[in-house]
Amino acid sequence: MGILEVKNVGKRFGGLQALGDVNLSVAENTVHAIIGPNGAGKSTLLNVLVGKLIPDTGSVMFDGQSVLGRKPHEINQMGISRVFQTPEIFSDLTVLENVMIPCFAKRDGAYRMHAFETVEDEVDIVQKAEQMLLDVNMQDKLRMTASSLSRGDKRRLEMAMCLVQEPRLLLLDEPTAGMARADTNNTIDLLKEIKDSRDITMAIIEHDMHVVFSLAERITVLAQGTPLVEDTPENIKGHPKVQEAYLGQAHG
């Protein structure tokens, strides 16, 4: 029984069957990649997992509880964090404040008004945030406005914001999309480091095979809204169906 169980999920947009009959099981403490050509339904599936879309059929269970019908902030409070294709950060706030906000959310729940303390009074939270930023090598950028960071640092910051909440499942939506090779490699290293140093389950949606094969322990191939195969990276590489549906096009 995996930490995330997707059963018979289907989603239709008008005449388009975005997700057919998706079954997926993500085991705890693994890195599970979901790949597939454009329009395969990867993003739709991710949006179902985080509560942005409600599927027409099927069920999604996280740690024995259904996530369907819950709002994104409730799903996050269950222990699922998400990294976006383009980093979503609080760009007008400082780097430190960016990481402090998830700490507050983790400690106090969806809302609690601390109107009569100063931010500096929250020593525990400041320390936790500083430690997190030290872990991702951003300790010298604490006071910078997030919008002035480089693209790679923004990605790093977003990861830090997710990780500081100690999520049980981290969803990554094409974390290297649009990046230069060097940045991509940095991101891979960062993700490897995260995987090795924490008890965390990751589900990655990715286009770049280089990223997928250097990280993933299980791979699910989606095509036209249904899972084609699910297997280890080694087996996927040589799978004829996958070659045909996806890799063949990408490498040919």
Binding site: V50, E74, N76, S91, D92, I101, A105, G109, Q165
Partner: peptide, 14 residues
């Protein structure tokens, strides 16, 4: 934070 990015806010559990 609300002013800057509401999407990130809700995906941060707030």
């Amino acid at each position: 934070a609300v002013k800057t990015n509401q999407t990130r806010m809700s995906y941060t559990g707030l």
